[in-house]
């Protein structure tokens, strides 16, 4: 299971902040989320959304280990 975390506007779109979901890769995880919530799916592919796995930004697809922490980070606003 991956611990999935949403931040900023993505959390408002989805209506949740953290969930445990079964996914073998980032691509599979995005497909799973998009299949159950098309608005969230669209937002995840939106401009400037970055993905962090275990608190490090990754680009492209990546296999997810069990207990991976996957965070979807919309464009950062600064403080």
């Amino acid at each position: 299971m991956a611990r999935v975390m949403l931040f900023g506007p993505l959390r408002d779109v989805a209506g949740w902040r953290e969930r445990d979901l079964p996914a073998a890769s980032i691509t599979a995880l995005k497909a799973l989320l998009a299949a159950e919530d098309s608005a969230l799916g669209l937002a995840l592919y939106g401009k400037g959304v970055q993905v962090a796995v275990d608190q490090a930004i990754v680009r492209g697809d990546l296999a997810l280990s069990a207990n991976a922490e996957v965070a979807f980070l919309p464009p950062m606003s600064g403080g």
């Binding site: 950062m76 600064g78 403080g79």
Partner: peptide, 24 residues
């Protein structure tokens, strides 16, 4: 300058007219 524009925060303003996410 870094903290105000690029630091990993997500900022929302809440007021009488509702709420909105803020970008730099």
């Amino acid at each position: 300058d870094y903290l105000k524009s690029r630091a990993p925060f997500w900022k929302k303003e809440v007021g009488p007219d509702g709420e909105r996410w803020i970008e730099p």
